[in-house]
Design a protein around this nucleic acid. Sequence first.
DNA 1: AAGTGGTCTAGACCACGAT
DNA 2: TCGTGGTCTAGACCACTTA
Lengths: 233, 233
Amino acid sequence: MLKYQHIADELEHYIEEHKLQQGDKLPVLQDLMVQFGVSKSTVTKALELLETKGVIFQVRGSGIFVRRHKRKGYISLLSTQGFKKVLEEFQITSKVIELDIRKPTKEAALNLNVSVDDDVYYVKRIRYIHGQSLCLEESYFNKSIITYLNNEIITESIFHYITEGLGLNVGFTDMFLHVDKLTEEEADYLGLKKGDPKLYVESIFHLTNGQPFDFSKVTYNYVQSQFFVQAVL
Amino acid sequence: MLKYQHIADELEHYIEEHKLQQGDKLPVLQDLMVQFGVSKSTVTKALELLETKGVIFQVRGSGIFVRRHKRKGYISLLSTQGFKKVLEEFQITSKVIELDIRKPTKEAALNLNVSVDDDVYYVKRIRYIHGQSLCLEESYFNKSIITYLNNEIITESIFHYITEGLGLNVGFTDMFLHVDKLTEEEADYLGLKKGDPKLYVESIFHLTNGQPFDFSKVTYNYVQSQFFVQAVL
DNA sequence: AAGTGGTCTAGACCACGAT
DNA sequence: TCGTGGTCTAGACCACTTA
């Protein structure tokens, strides 16, 4: 475990355990250096990480403070991939509608940077939060990277399998958001009415080496759709 | 100008000017150190900045590569505050509906961390993109921080005035997103129909010292609402 | 003036990828 | 094996806040 990663984790746990609130002051840099027995740069690196994650903010000449919003029930758009952490916070389940190997659509091939003759895994599922329909999800996985999938895996967390099972490193994601009206098919799946609002998100997930491996099209139930984004700068 | 900031700017301009595409390779660390006459750490800091901004990605043992998505016409949810940079890219205009000094609602007072007896500036305006209605915006500004506003200022960029005119430093923002149906009033302002979809975003803007100064409630026209988010890790 | 975070350096050593 | 980026150090100096 990297030192700065460890320090960041410790601090985050500390904030969580002691239920610190927005504006609460953390120990000064000097103290953290001594406490963890590392150099100033390493503490700084850990703090930069937490700042980018929206956990703290630093004020020159003043100190290090906790950043916390007060609202509950919002899903972070940035919290790692998909629902990795959300799975723990909320009760999310999945129902698989389709799973097969096929040739990608032109759109999927373009976004995955493969040929329309290459194989992809196609997954269609509905996800539920606390028993309510949360979203309808269609995913295309580059089969030369995600070499195997089955019903059990995609009923659980796909990303857990990709990182732990396949040992792949997820790097970054591009997400495109639209608001529109539900089609009849989508409304049926989500238990809503045709013409109701929807949040539609297309995501392209890349490995750390830049290869796209997952192109997903997700339609969210507007009733359950509460997202938050924390921006810095 | 900070060295690492300057290097980051230069690299970003370089990518822009030479129309580099996703996956194009940039000079290696060693070369950048020599080219800019700085230490390794400084180049690294610049590259981390660009990585967080979604401009590049780095692969250990391999190199530094350009990160670029192909889609046009999307507004970044994270690109600095509001529409600072978007103003240059797109043609955005504003029509002011209301501007006055008043006592905040309980909701606004809570989010701005002021008393309901304190004064706030209230701004209501419609923003247009290429002549089409983009959003209806209601903002509350803490008057003890934003000491003066007038019609001219809020017709242009409020954030430009806050940073340049008032010399304040914007630090971070919490944004909460919902999808819902338009009310009759909102539909009228945006030129849509009651019940049409909307993206509703509440934002709380903070100074670098953590003080909230702007609480905004924005309703987006779903037809114009194309957003993107670039996530790392 | 004292305290606190931010920038920058020079250099050692490590981990991963290409060949 | 070699090139490349990533981590970490010890320390100098700077910029801002607080009192």
